[in-house]
Amino acid sequence: MAFDTTKFARDSRRMDWQDLDFASFRTDPLPPETLRCLRYMCDIEFHTVCYMRDMLMTPSQVDGEVNTFMTIWNREEYWHGEALAAVLGEHGITVDYDALKATRLRAGWKDKLAPVRQALAGMLVGADFIAVHMSWGAANEWSAAAAYQRLAAMESHPALSPLLRRIAKQETRHVAFYASQARRRLERSRKAQLLTRYALRKFWGPVGSGVMPDAEVTHVMGHLFAGAAGGEQIDRIDGHIGNLPGMKGLTILRDAFRSRRIPLGAH
């Protein structure tokens, strides 16, 4: 079913947490490994704008539907960052704009030249390059939604778990956009399928791996997707990606975990 961007825009709300009992974090604080994951997730939500920038360097920018989605999506992700920053704040961890800037600066010229690479690839490949971005975005959003659901289930905290489920719910709507766009663009072009398959297999990494230090990526992914339940989630996401036209048999998450030596549960 086609994604209704007008409805998405009209229904969009900033993430709300005022009704949740954040005082419970004082009596029932989160363990350090969870806080480390939340810090990672918070940073990534705030860095969404960098991914949006790369997306805007593809020919997709003239598409009004894409522009509408990007505008609303970027704001929702910003509010996910704010919500997670509020949780971290309850534990004495301050997420300020200067620290976020420092993370972006650490990426150096690799980050600065990313839009140049995207623009060149977009020019060489043409409109089919948008399919790569949409499929990539779908993989990222599936991963993000799964990560929030996993952490909500693992912690079972009266304030954190409902917050994470709310975030996951919004991420699921983002998945719907990316997956429907990817499917539509892949269905009509064999070239787009081949290119997307190559790009995902060769270059895709866990969400955040482009900006965060490797040690953080390994820790967070290992923590969130540990055990048999984590392994099942990974396989489920790989299954979703494999269901996109021309992507059958791809196991990019499992491959990415394996190449980073992150332990995985049952296959």
Partner: peptide, 9 residues
Amino acid sequence: LVSPTHLDA
């Protein structure tokens, strides 16, 4: 966003 402005959080 293609410029250093994207670094300014």
